[in-house]
Design a protein around this nucleic acid. Structure first.
Lengths: 244, 244, 244, 244
DNA sequence: TATGAATGAGCTTTCATTCAT
DNA sequence: TATGAATGAAAGCTCATTCAT
């Protein structure tokens, strides 16, 4: 597409760049950004460490350029699922969530480095502009997918409820981020957990909403107790300042 | 109380140690153990980096001493709540969860450093022995508190369901860990979110169990669709290998 | 011989390594291993201290690599002399001693660092294994060369007498080790001193042995006095505890 | 003597100074100057490390002040022996040599630090003035004691011959300086070696001089061979440039 | 394009020394 | 007099990065 014919040199050059990116990706993923050295990347990529600087301005740029394509691919996957006619909103949310979980666990460095605002310094001239934009779009896709399912009450309630979804997602990613289990078996094992968790959360939200609309029905003893104890909750919160 | 009179020197010394601990805690939290330097800690604590070594053997000891007492206090709080006669199991879980959330957000360094297994190297001779033991006990207290609520089905189901609780907790902590909002207002704001999230999860689990026991009742359309779509889920998982 | 053509880079690299080794050797010699810093070595070698680490794993490795090849060359010289048919035992000892003195004064660092047991730590896992082996072999070559000359009396007497040789050698090395005179003129000047000293010692030993075999002949007045004074020597030794 | 009455404070102060000096002396002796820290000295002296600075300007001054009294004592011992009527010159030399050896081995730090010119910086304003003067006087006493024994030939010959004595002394000190054997047993063991070595050297010198005066008598085969081989000695020296 | 050589900044840690009480 | 608190200088070493070929 881009060029009908590439000289051997060009091909070789591309291959070098690709192998550097692959090596860096693997190492960042396995051991995080900070602990990986340029020389290690070079060794893994079978080139000199100085060669890396021919293709990437510096270590941080390497990380960024490494991040953008996967994020774009992820967004494409999100959009594809959202436009899938054969799935209902819940199905779409599940599928998107699976994509998201898989992405985070297969690009570990991105979770810590890109999703943590701090590490991508904002004090530079638009250093991670594209990355940030992508990040924001991804989150809004997720939010939208959740909101399509939860019946519209007051927008405040809806927002609060949708947060539970994010907590679960964030929690799953955090929980399995440092797992040493190989990716595929790990996913095979935890995607059912993801499905189940989302199912539970949606079910919980549904019944919570029903409860609010019809407060006398379906309460368990625990719930009633809780209701009672709500009176002094605030006080409890205060009391629990256990640390200096 | 502790001592009637403290010399000015003693006070100064205590203050220095305290400010070092605080600075280290904050910095570890924000940027992790490895990337924070002793000189940075010293700068933040308004002292020379060599002064740190007067109070802490080395960087690792600084981390450990930072961690142990709060963790012990947290465990004491856990036990106190668990023995509280006036609370039902749900109330206990809520209260424990609040303690846990408050702890994580007020000791941010511990979340990244201690709860992430990697950072506390395991290849050394009992490097963080006491820390690890504490950590394990805390988790077992949480697990137990959850299990007291969820009706005993198969133990597998129970374990899986209780995981949702952990995902939510972990997710909340991760979400607000980097918040720059001051601690107390933040907690004031998000503890209702915590209560609500746990409530939703427990409600979801309860109804999920009922569903399983009585599979025909109470299904929503979304649920049925999901059921249908389960057939090709595995295939989907395979298909979604979107990255090399 | 070794390679027909060397690139400029190779030459530069070799020159750098050589100048580092030279600088380190000189400084170790003058001020000992511990007090010399990597930065000082670098300054003397006209390079950055980090450059040293390109050529030597660490400071200890620098020391070792500095020591082994010269020690091997020295042993080769020893063996060559010892197998030289045209020299009688005394001639061999003289020649070997000259080699030894030249070596010590032209590799000053090795005298303090290698011949002083302490500096090469023994508490590590075989830290200077090869160096120690070489060292031991060298000393046994020297011992053997001395023993070929001194007529075999009781082995104890022989050992004691041969020690005088070592004291002289060690003393000469110590005396001229810190000389600032250039090596060649210095050697030109002191090798006659060495020859003379060994000659004197051998002559002394010879006559001492004769004396013992035939105790009445050839005593000087001084000797007789000494003999007399031997009675209270032990007491003198005790008396001479002049320091607390 | 110095003051008829000392206040309790003065006594206590002197005691502190003494205990610091003792501690420093012990540690310097055992482990050398560089490796001993001020805090260690303080610990050994049962005081704070800051207290040391009340009595000694700095670490180097501590070492110096530590050195002077023993050196003075040593000189006094030298003079006492030299004035001893009951000893002949050889007996005096032996006794002085014993004192000297004992001193060096019981004040190890002084050997390396004071007898090695380098370590006592000369670029300061008379930093070690008294120490240097003492040092020089001690050496001249030794030289004189040797010269009283060796029959006066040409002064050049005398000087050269007397050097052998210094080589032996220097060699013995160097050899046993780092011995880990306790001092007293060590001395008990090596003072006979010292006596013997000096005896041999004096005997050797005596016969050497006789040889020179009467060159045909008393040559051994080895000596003759050596004489023969002298022709090409210079050439040998040249040839033995074995190192680059 | 590619690389080996070289470096400056910076890391953790130690130590002699000064400050303030 | 005596001391705990605090510090600057400097150690060995690593790493991302630039230079020269």
């Amino acid at each position: 597409m881009e060029s009908i014919k590439k000289s051997k040199q060009e091909l070789r050059s591309e291959e070098t760049k690709r192998s550097i990116a692959e090596a860096a990706g693997n190492l960042f993923t396995e051991r995080g950004y900070d602990t990986v050295t340029m020389r290690e990347i070079a060794k893994e990529a079978n080139c000199s460490h100085t060669t890396i600087y021919l293709y990437f301005k510096d270590k941080e740029a390497l990380l960024e350029q490494l991040a953008i394509p996967p994020l774009q691919t992820l967004e494409a996957a999100f959009l594809s699922v959202m436009n899938e006619k054969s799935l209902d909103p819940t199905g779409k949310l599940l599928e998107i969530s699976r994509h998201f979980l898989r992405f985070c666990l297969s690009h570990k460095s991105m979770v810590t480095v890109i999703f943590n605002v701090k590490s991508v310094r904002v004090d530079e001239v638009n250093p991670a502009g594209e990355v940030n934009q992508l990040r924001n779009r991804l989150f809004s896709h997720l939010t939208e997918s959740v909101n399509r399912i939860i019946p519209a009450e007051t927008s405040e309630a809806r927002i609060n409820h949708s947060r539970v979804y994010f907590f679960v997602m964030n929690g799953m990613v955090s929980t399995y981020l440092n797992s040493e289990e190989p990716l595929e078996p790990l996913l095979e094992r935890i995607i059912p957990l993801l499905d189940q968790s989302i199912e539970i959360v949606l079910l919980g939200i549904k019944h919570k909403l029903e409860q609010v609309q019809n407060p006398l029905k379906g309460q368990t003893k625990g719930q009633k107790d809780k209701e009672k104890s709500k009176k002094d909750k605030k006080q409890k919160v205060k009391k629990s300042k256990i640390e200096g």
